[in-house]
Design a protein around this nucleic acid. Structure first.
Lengths: 337, 337
DNA sequence: CGACGGAGTCGAAGCGCTTCGACAACCTAT
DNA sequence: ATAGGTTGTCGAAGCGCTTCGACTCCGTCG
């Protein structure tokens, strides 16, 4: 294990000089810098993370708290996590992976031990129990997702309210009057996950304005659950012609079931999905969809965090504008009914 | 920020005594221990991670290197990652998330800086370029996946060769003679990912022994790719009656396409999937499948690693035995052809 | 009854780095 | 020519913890 001191000796300078070459916090003559850099190369020197953290009280680590449960949007979570990790690296940070399991304790542990300089939380609930802790500490943090009260917090999220509205508008424009929303699993609503409720909010209020009727049904993923849900929908609202699906694992079952029932997409019913691009493109019908910009969310979260760490001013809430891509699963509602 | 020294003062003992209470490396009288523990509670003390790492040269961090690409088995990767994180916590370790992006450099960085005590690598290729580095360092590591040469390495994986064999056996027993393997995306084979090749191996050699014909076709996920692949399969081997699918995103498209072509599952063709339980259960047909025990793999990897860190002897290669669960997608091949 | 060993505690020496103040050497402006 | 400022470098003082050796009590054994 090569140390700073050894590099210094090898280069014929003092330890502090090597440190300044590394950090760039004081000016160093070109000659010295080169000599030091060559020594670093030759000796294969890597600064010791612990010593660095101790001396500087900065660990260059960002903690990322992912949800423990895997009952929804796993690929999205993964994509965000990877985007966070790669973006963090470009800013010189590593990422510590925490699961939601420990809950608030994890926040205390990480904050208290100086393990991480900052943290990013995913899967935020409307009244998340970790929030008071975050407000009470001076450690910077960013939420991916939006709680009910964002005061004193920095958040990054897709604008799900606008997303809901956008879906309704598209369907309304095409002449649909009765639309059904196939949502996440009931558990997701029960724990008041922000994005699910906000989507519904946006959807409903825009529908009211435009005079559409909305039926919302949570749905566990999978074929059987979707079949039951779909049956109920057509039972209660036989005139339903528009679907908004916010549940990856219900997408393909829905399409498949509609096909079996002889309902053509998009001639008889239109379907909009709120999902990652890949799902929309790979489905059996190319789906009109609002993409979930997972990478963008991860990237922005890190950038906000780094800005805070560097003392730059940051926006409090970053809401990414939804974009609806029209593919072949939506079409005009025939006036024939 | 409360320090050890402050706790010591508050409890009326020396700093080293507090340290020994925390680590348990020397015996402490019950009275002292209680006094110290109360002080820790009252002051809300958390040991500083950096100082600890510096003094003990152990960071209590395990690095987990996940693949950067998200072209396959994302949910599996996520599940493994989460299992790794939670298991690591029960052993007192945190997990550092590295993406494959940096490649071998990440290994050097982490090893060199003492950031992590050990590492777990996922998505191992048969001749992975990170392996020489691992062999050359004294830092413990565990691979999830199996490279061509496992000497000097510890690996944990599902026994994919046995998995392939198991699938063939089941189909053979049911009377199928011509089977098609729908594999991962071509890129996966091109970079010689261990599990894909080993499955194929096991499949082919067992098929040869049992006198079955095997057609292997890599397949990008999604509906269109699957349609093209399926057309080719029936073109080249019209008598194909058994399918083995090792590609999550091809499962549902395949079922859907077969249905459209009027081929009943399992009466006309049988389908076995190699995928997580959830996928098999949620598909439009409840699939006979060999489960990918993601959680188990993550857990075992950590346990192997912890054993190594504690100097215990460990097995070199842990191969989990595949289990085939018969559901409703496989059935006897009618002798009528 | 003195020597011995274990239990319990303390002090001090680092671990490898950052960072502050000091200082020498040099350059400018007066 | 001299005061004042830059620029480049060094030494030393920690950062908060672990760990080693040493020391003090006791209880125990021969």
């Amino acid at each position: 294990m090569v140390t700073l001191a050894e590099v210094a000796q090898h280069a014929g300078v003092s330890a502090s000089t090597v440190s300044y070459v590394l950090s760039g916090k004081r000016s160093i003559s070109a000659g010295t810098r080169q000599r030091v850099e060559r020594s670093i190369q030759e000796l294969g020197y890597h600064p010791n993370a612990g010593a660095r953290a101790l001396a500087s009280s900065r660990s260059n680590i960002i903690a990322l708290m992912v949800p423990l449960r895997t009952d929804m949007y796993v690929p999205v979570m993964m994509e965000i996590a990877i985007a966070v990790a790669t973006t963090a690296r470009t800013h010189g940070y590593d990422v510590l992976l925490l699961t939601g399991e420990e809950g608030p304790d994890a926040v205390r542990r990480v904050t208290g031990s100086g393990l991480a300089d900052a943290m990013i939380l995913m899967d935020v609930e409307l009244a998340d129990e970790r929030l008071p802790l975050l407000r009470g500490t001076d450690q910077p943090s960013v939420l991916i997702g939006l709680p009910a009260d964002t005061s004193g917090l920095t958040c990054v999220d897709l604008d799900f309210r606008a997303t809901g509205a956008l879906c309704v508008e598209h369907l309304a424009m095409l002449g649909h009057r009765d639309i059904a929303v196939i949502g996440e699993a009931p558990a997701v609503y029960e724990r008041h996950t922000g994005f699910a409720e906000r989507t519904l909010d946006g959807l409903r209020s825009r529908a009211r304005e435009l005079g559409l009727r909305v039926l919302h049904r949570p749905c566990e993923g999978g074929y059987d659950a979707m079949a039951a849900t779909l049956a109920r929908v057509f039972d209660e609202r036989p005139g339903t012609t528009g679907f908004v699906v916010q549940n990856e694992s219900a997408v393909e079952p829905l399409l498949s079931l509609l096909r079996q029932q002889g309902r053509a997409v998009p001639e008889d019913v239109s379907v909009i999905a709120i999902c990652p691009e890949q799902v929309a493109v790979q489905a059996s019908v190319r789906l009109t969809s609002v993409a979930i910009p997972a990478q963008e969310m991860g990237r922005r979260a890190v950038e906000q965090l780094v800005a805070k760490l560097e003392g730059r001013d940051t926006e409090e809430v970053v809401l990414l504008a939804p974009e609806l891509t029209v593919r072949t699963s939506t079409g005009p509602q025939s006036t024939a009914d």
